[in-house]
């Protein structure tokens, strides 16, 4: 990311009980691949990674309740990804009782 673009930073907390692993991570990747703007994610003060990469997201090893920082030149993109991560991504939509 070039420094002359104003980056929008949004803090978020991992809302998936099993962390950003397995299914929640895959959902984040799918969501990010559909975005028009570049976006990164990481820990406060740590390296920012490309959330379109499942490998990097898994290596980030973000657990339930951890705070993360989302950055994008586009404010809405940053806000939407932050909201997604704060949600319960390991819960099935429409299928009950198999979130473990």
């Amino acid at each position: 990311m070039s420094d002359d673009i104003t980056m929008n930073r949004v803090e978020t907390i991992v809302g998936s009980r099993h962390g950003l692993h397995a299914r929640p991570a895959a959902r984040v990747v799918e969501f990010c691949r559909g975005l028009d703007h570049a976006v990164t994610i990481g820990r406060e003060g740590g390296p920012q990674i490309n959330p379109k990469s499942l490998a990097m997201l898994l290596a980030l090893d973000a657990n339930f309740g951890e705070s993360l920082v989302v950055e994008s030149a586009d404010p809405e993109t940053a806000a939407r990804l932050a909201e997604l991560i704060a949600g319960e991504l390991d819960r099935d939509e429409g299928v009950e009782g198999s979130d473990s």
Partner: peptide, 16 residues
């Protein structure tokens, strides 16, 4: 399905 979908994302991973 979950594993296969995740694997499909792995084959398109930008880092790879």
């Amino acid at each position: 399905a979950d594993v296969l979908l995740a694997q499909s994302l792995m084959a398109r991973d930008p880092v790879i």
